[in-house]
Nucleic acid binder design. Structure first.
Lengths: 135, 135
DNA sequence: GACGAGCTACGACGGATGTAGTAGGTTGTC
DNA sequence: GACAACCTACTACATCCGTCGTAGCTCGTC
């Protein structure tokens, strides 16, 4: 089977992120936003990505005066989740836990973050009132 | 700047994973392993990937009889870490915590995994004997 | 109503990727 | 010593990706 062409490429994701940051906006604004982040892309390059994103159904556009206003059609969370799942699939054959373990063990989390994580887990535990007795 | 060409592509990663699973081995064995996983690639395709992996310094090879034996030069952990970091950079601008939160909140972790995670965190806490009193 | 500033559409181009075929060398076997 | 089996090297090729350039339309301004 031919390679997938509905996936977001890295550059496309960058542009989509700009759209998430800015909300519905024009090519020029997206470009400026990117420039502000040190990403120097030509106007037409940004246009190309936006066009491809539209073709891939990640954004919609509607004409407003002379120019088009582009709007993200997918949420940051959705895309994040999808990408994450792909990576987990690819790296850990679908199991999330090893990833978290990896993160925790590689000291990528600060003490504060660890604290927050623990609190979150406690909440989860409380919410589901789950018992574990396999000690 | 031109796109990076030292990066692992998805297909290359698959082959590398086979090498991690099998240890140093031949093209044919890698192919068979892939086939066993339902990944039907032609012998020469596998060869191509192995060759590219060699060019990118991810594997080494040495002749053994008529054929070459390929061996991973990079550890699974290393590659995993790198890929993960890229994703975190890309999705969360470098912060790991949101990723974990995302994982936990999106119910991608089973109760068992949550339990394990909590245990791990307790161990961490015990190890550093950290205190938190900002309740 | 001609000019310039913007904007979009479309084509382009080199490099990466996924996938494989073919040519040609090596070698065990009859 | 010819043949089949197997191996590698090289080439190929369509598509994707990152990046733009150019052409042509539109609209405000003098």
């Amino acid at each position: 089977m031919p390679p997938r062409q509905t996936d977001l490429s890295d550059a496309e994701l960058e542009v989509l992120k700009a759209l998430w940051d800015l909300g519905p906006t024009s090519v020029r604004d997206v470009m400026n936003h990117l420039h502000a982040q040190g990403r120097e892309l030509a106007y037409t390059t940004v246009l190309t990505f936006l066009t491809r994103l539209k073709a891939k159904k990640y954004v919609t556009s509607k004409k407003s005066g002379q120019a088009y206003i582009y709007k993200a059609r997918v949420s940051r969370e959705k895309v994040t989740g999808t990408r994450l799942s792909s990576l987990i699939e690819q790296l850990f054959d679908g199991a999330s836990a090893p990833l978290v373990l990896h993160l925790v063990q590689s000291n990528k989390l600060s003490p504060d973050e660890i604290g927050e994580l623990r609190r979150m887990l406690e909440d989860l535990d409380a919410a589901s009132s789950d018992v574990e007795g396999d000690d």
